[in-house]
Amino acid sequence: MWQAVYEDHKDDDFMVIAVAQESRGLETAQEFIDEANPSYVVLIDQEHVVSDLYNLTNVPQAIWIDEGGQIVRPPETAGSHDGWRAMNREDMSMPDNSAATIAKAQETYMNALRDWAKNGADSKFAFDEVAARAHLRMPTDNTALAFANFYLGQYLYQNGNQAEGIAFLEAAVDLKPESWTMYRQIMNLKEVGQMGFAADEAFFARVDALGAERYYEPPDLEGFPTELGFEPVA
């Protein structure tokens, strides 16, 4: 997904680091890496350390970091759009208007990223410090406790104590219900779902329960479609 932007801008002192939030590591990640065959840096994060450090709630979320190691765009949805929720769940087909909205969202985000890759601090899409701080989502005590539960749950689950592991993992989701990453990683650990993504009736019921709330919070980016584009299930 990021190969073209990386190839086009790698001579502009630009690097892509794509971190897999992947409890089962290469067991589940390898085929996706083989398929994408990226020349940028791919890392495997079995403990979800990056989600913990940056208070992430979903994938793909991205952070823009300047040459000096400073955050110039805090964590935000990396171009994805809730239009996917209008998908036909039988045949996975997408209504035309949703497909167009999704494409527009991707294009808007990608153009902003390319502008920054090329122009760095001069890009209008790089926030100054005040704006960057204003866009941070700060962790709460429940966030910190959720990640502690998540670490312990994963360790127990993968080291011979599945029953207790699941209890800690589910406690993590209860403490941080906005984290689709935790919720879906647990489904993947339990080997729920098919067709390459962890989805079952419970997942779709949870998505439908969002109503007008977002699965992918739109980034604060001029031109990015902020409308759902479909009538959410009440």
Partner: peptide, 23 residues
């Protein structure tokens, strides 16, 4: 994927697009 370790700070001097994904 080959087991070589990378730190984010190894990439100081570059603009880094740090993104997440999953299977």
């Amino acid at each position: 994927p080959r087991g070589a370790m990378h730190s984010l700070s190894d990439y100081r001097g570059k603009k880094v697009f740090l993104t997440t994904w999953s299977s």
